[in-house]
Nucleic acid binder design. Structure first.
Length: 733
RNA sequence: GCGCGGUUAGCUCAGUUGGUAGAGCGUCCCCUUGACGUGGGGAAGGUCACAGGUUCGAAUCCUGUAUCGCGCACCA
């Protein structure tokens, strides 16, 4: 043992300083080129015939900055990727960002309105899109910078954007093929109209909010035989029928009769019909049918061949009635009609109920069901050259057949349930930012192709596509599709893992399976790892109003990105929400420092010996320690392969601190200070070997501090730690 | 209404195929010993939500209940 001045790097004499270290280390990694699997092969750290491992990054929306959820996603995926890379796999982690159509457009609209008092129509489509693109670019740059700060080993040379040229080509190609197969059609149907965002949205973009409402029970007129109930009296001027249950004795005699009434000044024609969809016990057991403003009513109307009378427009204003109603907002019209019912003595009952109100996910606007001409994807149509399977079938097959493994598997049920109840997907949006629908019109003619028609006078559909349409292509549009010759596509697709939040299993996971199955006849990924929400220490959602938001960059600056990563991974498994607190992060900062101090001790006490990675003369005691250690490392490796990172991380943490530092190092002190040279060199070799291996194994979790320590370790011919081979190859028992 | 998940130490959570309950943080006591006070040693603290059942043996498997949370559907 060296008394006095140990001959070690002076850096080790002061505590570990993540802020000084992390930027420098990331630069080293980037300059090495090892994020790119081609360079790994070129530089001989990866075998060219190695098994591929690929993940495409769920592209963050270019709507602002990274939040703690993104940081958690980056941490988990980076662990997977670094582990695979160190195992020698041909590893690709492909980055990108999402234009997030509605979300980005409405954000920019808000900014422009606030700063300039202008609306998008004041600027015009072209100028407005310019503004959105500038915003998206800024936002993109911030996000990329943040991802780098978290240590993400993404191959930046392959970066993609859902709205760039290559992805646009993929989108148009996909659209065209679906159009030609008759899977995409244009139809006039009841859609979810968002009056606030002035666009249609899909069923999945609806968020239900529980609110108090009044249920009014009344008759259209004094002579009308049946009372009905509604929470939306203003829509009743659009009623065309009253539906009752076929078995309902109360109303049987009226079925088939027709009535003409004047309802609040509006003439209506009501037919009494019988339909089993009506519940006898709800309200009066009779349902006023409003085909234009209710999906269910539209279904009933279709069955009974009833007309559709639209009474509300895109601005949620009345388009029928006299001065009393015409042009009024729906909420005003409601009061007017209720007042009219009251004075006419038609109102029989008013009761408070709670109901789920449909709101638009992005804008919060209350959804107004309206009949509109839109583009849809038919999920129930048999596809001829696919054995007459439907898109639904194609979505279900790989999960049923276990070709795609969902973690945790309980989400399989949720997935089935969703797919089985899926209705046609409305893909057109009345917004400017996004992929414009590749369809052109000339009079009654319609033209759909990947490129615009050569002849003049064709006018392109003004609408754009749902952002999830392009996201659905993500696993292969990023790898070169529609170019089937693309090397990346051949090597890396299907991707190995999709790691994403369970909250977008329908939006995204299902759509990717749909698109990949249909367009490539191939699954998009083999395993889906679903992470949960990151909540605060008390388990609450993080939100601005609660003031409990933890900014990943703030805490990374304070405690180091390693500590933040570790705290995001520990104590959390797939499918479960996790909790986050500064205390938790702090404890992993301490861990990084502990490792640093262990390194100082080991290096300063072993610098007299030469590290030999094939040392054979271990003492009996040290052989036992080796066996114990390797058993733990083996378990850790196995757990990593099973995606149980929380268990693996905890084991390496426990081993380093509670076993290696607290017990083994303490017991080593007398040995290293003793007189027995064989014991001394054996123990010194063990300490060095173990320190080295702890660093390797911990690297996927805490890449910065381990890479920094690695640079100080006496390993011969070493490369960067990020491409150093994993020490355990065989996990079979 | 249908489905899913949670309920384990003060707090946050582990607990792999059933075999005497674990960690971190917090609390209390001790240690300014040469890697580290961002540390070390020790202690207190649990009818594993409840009730049945299966079993030699249940936190773990089965049934039911309570409770919290989530998803879907309904929402006239």
């Amino acid at each position: 043992m060296n008394n006095g001045q140990p001959d070690i790097n002076p850096k080790l004499l002061s505590p570990y300083n993540p802020e000084e270290t992390e930027g420098r280390i990331y630069k080293l990694w980037e300059e090495s080129g090892f994020f790119n699997p081609d360079i790994c092969i070129e530089k001989n750290v990866t075998d060219k015939d190695a098994e591929p491992f690929s993940i495409v990054l769920p592209p963050p929306n270019v709507t602002g900055t990274l939040h703690i959820g993104h940081a958690s996603m980056l941490a988990i995926e980076d662990i997977m990727v670094r582990f695979a890379r160190m195992q020698g796999k041909r590893t690709l982690w492909l980055p990108g960002t999402d234009h997030a159509a509605i979300a980005t457009q409405s954000k920019v609209e808000k900014i422009i309105e606030k700063e300039e008092g202008k609306r998008k129509n004041d600027l015009g489509r072209e100028e407005f899109l310019k503004r959105v693109n500038t915003f998206a670019q800024d936002s993109h740059d911030t996000i990329i910078d943040q991802a780098k700060k978290m240590g993400a080993s993404l191959d930046w040379s392959r970066e993609a954007f859902t709205l760039d040229d290559k992805r646009s080509l993929a989108v148009r190609t996909a659209f065209k093929k679906m159009y030609d197969d008759g899977l995409i059609y244009r139809g006039n149907r009841i859609v979810n109209w968002d009056p606030k965002g002035q666009t249609v949205i899909s069923d999945d973009e609806i968020v239900y909010e529980e609110r108090k409402a009044k249920l009014y029970t009344f008759k259209y007129s004094k002579d009308f035989p049946i009372s009905i109930s509604t929470t939306r009296p203003e829509t009743k001027v659009g009623d065309v029928a009253v539906a009752v249950h076929p078995e309902d004795a109360r109303y049987k005699e009226y079925v088939g009769k027709e009535y003409d009434e004047i309802f609040c000044g509006v003439p209506i024609h009501i037919k009494i019909i019988a339909d089993a969809a009506v519940e006898k016990d709800f309200g009066t057991g009779a349902l006023g049918v409003t085909p234009a403003h209710s999906q269910i009513d539209a279904d009933i109307a279709y069955k009974h061949n009833l007309p559709t009378v639209q009474v509300i427009n895109e601005y949620a204003k009345m388009i029928v009635g006299g001065e009393n109603l015409l042009g009024k907002k729906t909420t005003e019209a409601r009061d007017i009609i209720v007042e009219w019912l009251r004075t006419e003595g038609l109102l029989e009952k008013e009761e408070e109920i709670t109901q789920n109100v449909s709101t638009a996910e992005r804008t919060g606007g209350i959804i107004e069901p309206l009949p509109k001409l839109q583009w849809f994807i038919n999920v129930n149509k048999p596809i001829k050259d696919r054995d007459n399977k439907t898109l639904k079938d194609l979505m279900l097959e790989p999960i049923r057949g276990k070709n795609i493994n969902i973690l945790p598997d309980r989400f399989e049920k949720v997935y089935y349930n969703w797919v089985e109840n899926l209705r046609d997907w409305c893909i057109s949006r009345q917004i400017w930012y996004g992929h414009r629908i590749p369809v052109w019109y000339k009079g009654n003619e319609i033209y759909c192709d990947v490129e615009e028609p050569k002849e003049a006078d064709w006018e392109q559909d003004p609408d754009t596509l749902d952002t999830w349409f392009s996201s659905g292509l993500w696993t292969f549009s990023t790898l070169g599709w529609p170019d089937l010759e693309s090397k990346d596509l051949q090597i890396y697709h299907p991707t190995t893992v999709l790691e994403t939040g369970y909250d977008i299993i329908f939006f995204w996971v299902a759509r990717m399976i749909l698109m990949s199955q249909y367009l490539l006849d191939e699954i998009p990924f083999k395993t889906v790892y679903l992470h949960g929400l990151v909540r605060d220490a008390q388990g609450r959602k993080m939100s601005k109003s609660l003031g409990n938001i933890i900014d990943p960059l703030d805490v990374a600056k304070k405690y180091g990105a390693d500590a933040v990563r570790m705290s995001l991974v520990m104590g959390t498994g797939p499918g479960n929400d996790s909790k986050m607190s500064e205390d938790k992060i702090k404890s992993y900062k301490n861990y990084a420092n502990k490792l640093w101090n262990i390194t100082r001790f080991v290096l300063s006490n072993t610098n007299e010996i030469k590290y030999n990675d094939n040392f054979q003369e271990y003492t009996k005691k040290d052989k036992e320690l080796l066996t114990e250690r390797d058993e733990i490392f083996k378990t850790i490796t196995k757990e990593m392969e099973e995606y149980k990172f929380y268990l693996a991380g905890d084991k390496i943490y426990q081993y380093t601190w509670a076993r290696f530092a607290d017990i083994i190092i303490e017991e080593s002190k007398p040995i290293l200070n003793g007189e027995n040279d064989e014991d001394k060199s054996s123990r010194a070799q063990f300490l060095l070997d173990t320190l080295i291996k702890i660093n390797i194994i911990l690297h996927p979790f805490m890449p910065f501090v381990t890479e920094e320590i690695w640079s100080l370790l006496p390993v011969e011919n070493k490369n960067l730690l990020m491409v150093t081979p994993w020490p355990i190859n065989d996990t079979t028992n």
